[in-house]
Every structure is written in C-alpha cells, then in structure tokens.
C-alpha cells in the first residue's frame, strides 16, 4: 500500500473505531451528560416543556424523560436499581412510603426528602361526540353517566392511580349526594359477581377482583389513561374519569366536580379518607393493596443514588418553577 494511502486508511479506521465506541456527540461537538428523569404518566406533557427549557439552558445535557405509573417510577430506583436522577410522582405519599427506607446496596435511604409541587382534580372528560354532551353539567353528571346507553371509561386501578381515584370519586359522590348509587350504577354492577361497597368502620371500602374484566360494555377499563382517552376520542366511550390537567392537555371538554368529590382539596374536612379501594392482589411486594382516599398531590425527589445530583436539583427546581407558572397540561400549583 502506498504510504499516503496507508495514512488515510489509518485515520479512517481509527475514526470509525472512536465512533463505534460511543463517541457520538449528538451534533454538539462534545459528549453530553444524560439526565434521566422519570415522571408519572400524567406529567409527561408538561415535562416535555421542562426538558426543552432545561436543555436550552444546558446544551451539554441530554434530558431523557421516561414515563411510567407512579409506583413503577419509584420501583425503577428501589427494586430495579436503575441510575435515575429525578423522580416525579402523582401521589406524594408514595415517596415516604417506598423511598424513606434503606437501600441495601448503599446503606442509606433511597431518598430522604421530597418536594410537593402541584395538585390535581378528578374530572369527567368528554368530547363533542359524547352522548348527551350538550346536556351534561356539574349538577346532573351522575344521572347522565348512569343512562343505559352511555359508556364510561377508567384506567386500570391495579396499574394507574387515576384508576383507583376514579372509583373513589364514585364512592365520595355516594356520600355527597343524597340517594346516590353512582358506584353501583357506573362500576359495581358491571362485574360478575357485582362489586359492592362495604362499610368497614365508617369507611366505604371496595375490594376489587384479581382480574378486572367488566361483564358488559357499559364500563371500559384500559391499562393506562392514554388508552382510555384514545377510546374517548374515537367515540368508543362517551365519558372518562381523568385528571383535569390531562383533559386540558388533550383539548377535551370536562365537567368539574365538587371539591368534596374531586380529591383536589387539601382540607381534611372533606373526608376523602372515608373511602378505600382494596386492590385485587399485591402487584408489588413493596406496597400493600389498600388505597385510601387522599388529596392528589404531585411531588418530585432526587434519589440518593442519582448520578448527577447537582443537575437533578436544578431540574427539580425548574419543575417547581414551571409548575408555578402553569400552562396547558400542568397540574395546578399547590398554592393556587
């Protein structure tokens, strides 16, 4: 081989070797730090905004957002031991319950603190195509949803906090409205055998079966909110129990519910704790089957094993700041 050709070949081969060993730079000319952020599914849309804003401020950082259900988000750290920088959940109580405990690998807690930053409310989401869309109001929503030709959707309570919160809304409605049988009409009687709400020491308690297959077409259950909403937008169902921020983010119409029902109030006097859903089985060994009614509060934390703590802290601060500014798809700020 002529010497000059040898030199060119050597340069090309070494260049390819470098590229093949992970030297891609994403077009920035230098290696980027990956910031792994795991939010609950209902935060995915607003977190896209935070990701863009953060990357604009930090061109050297590639924010990678990966959504899961809230419990699965935490499990990525506690059970699957993945290196995660930021965790954000739709149920703040899960953090002390699941992460304020010792990580056997490090001898320290998975985390020691968290920042509640937003709240949300359950609403009845619908579209212009929904049956009786022009009739439904905050006053008659129960009667409209109970009509035999109306189909209703919830996400799977085994998998999604919005799912068991949907059931809680019907139980709270039965406490709030006189002569209400919404839990039975919308959920209970659409299983074989029917699900019943038992009074256990003053708490309306529903025990779910292991496999959640409704026995008729009135009630539709899907694994995650996105599939329920897809069904709603396609006209397969008429109404869905959903978070207000998600309904807004999907440009849906929605009916607001009274604070005594919608799980948005921080006032203990609302009595959310008077309803309980017992899941059909213990899907995760780390957390029990009981879900007791409480306000919907979002929280963010940085695991003690986060690879990039300083950046993670900056990202969490930006989440809180952006949340305070609000915007489409954001849950309401805690102070608002």
């Amino acid at each position: 081989m002529p010497p000059i050709k040898f030199l060119v070949a050597a340069v090309v081969i070494i260049g390819m070797l470098c590229w093949g060993t992970g030297c891609t730079t994403g077009g920035t000319g230098h290696e980027q730090t990956v910031l792994k952020v795991l939010p609950a599914g209902s935060l995915l849309q607003p977190f896209e905004e935070v990701e863009k804003a953060f990357e604009a401020e930090h061109p050297d950082v590639d924010v990678q957002v990966e959504g899961h259900g809230s419990i699965q988000v935490i499990r990525q750290v506690t059970d699957l031991h993945r290196p995660v920088d930021v965790v954000a959940v739709a149920d703040a109580s899960l953090i002390p319950d699941l992460m304020f405990r010792t990580d056997p690998a490090t001898g320290t807690n998975f985390t020691d603190s968290y920042t509640p930053f937003a709240r949300n409310a359950m609403v009845i989401a619908y579209t212009n195509k929904s049956r009786y869309a022009n009739e439904i109001t905050s006053e008659n929503w129960g009667a409209v949803l109970s009509r035999p030709d109306v189909r209703v959707g919830i996400s799977n309570p085994m998998l999604d906090a919005a799912g068991y919160r949907s059931i809680m809304v019907t139980l709270l409605a039965d406490r709030y409205y006189a002569n209400s049988t919404l839990f039975t009409d919308l959920i209970g009687r659409h299983f074989t055998p029917p699900l019943v709400a038992e009074d256990v020491d003053g708490v309306a308690t529903v025990r779910l079966p292991e496999v959640l297959h409704p026995s008729d077409e009135k009630l539709v259950i899907r694994d995650g909110s996105i599939f329920v909403l897809s069904h709603l937008e396609a006209g397969g169902i008429d109404y869905a129990f959903e978070y207000r921020s998600v309904a807004e983010g999907h440009d849906l119409r929605w009916i607001d519910l009274p604070p005594a029902i919608d799980l948005s109030s921080q006032n203990p006097a609302e009595g959310y704790g008077k309803v309980k859903v017992v899941l059909g089985f213990q899907r995760f060994s780390a957390i029990g089957q009981d879900r007791i009614g409480q306000p919907i509060v979002y929280a963010v934390t940085i695991p003690n094993t986060a690879p990039n703590r300083d950046l993670a802290s900056e990202f969490a601060d930006l989440v809180v700041k952006e949340s305070e500014s609000g915007g489409k798809g954001w849950p309401a700020t805690l102070g608002g």
Binding site: P3, L7, A10, Q32, T33, P83
Partner: peptide, 30 residues
C-alpha cells in the same frame, strides 16, 4: 512514511481519549 504514520495514529488515539471517547465513564452509568 509508515514510520511517520505511527505517531500520527498514536496522536489520534490520544486525542480521542482526551475528548472522552475511550476509557472514560459514560455519561450515565450502565
């Protein structure tokens, strides 16, 4: 010429290494 190319290759490998292309910790631990 081949002898001249060897230091060039060594320099290339070193520059790659210095730029974080070999042997450095990945941005996110596996």
């Amino acid at each position: 010429m081949i002898r001249a190319a060897i230091p060039v290759c060594i320099l290339l490998v070193l520059s790659c290494w210095c730029a974080g292309c070999a042997g450095t910790a990945p941005a996110s631990p596996p």
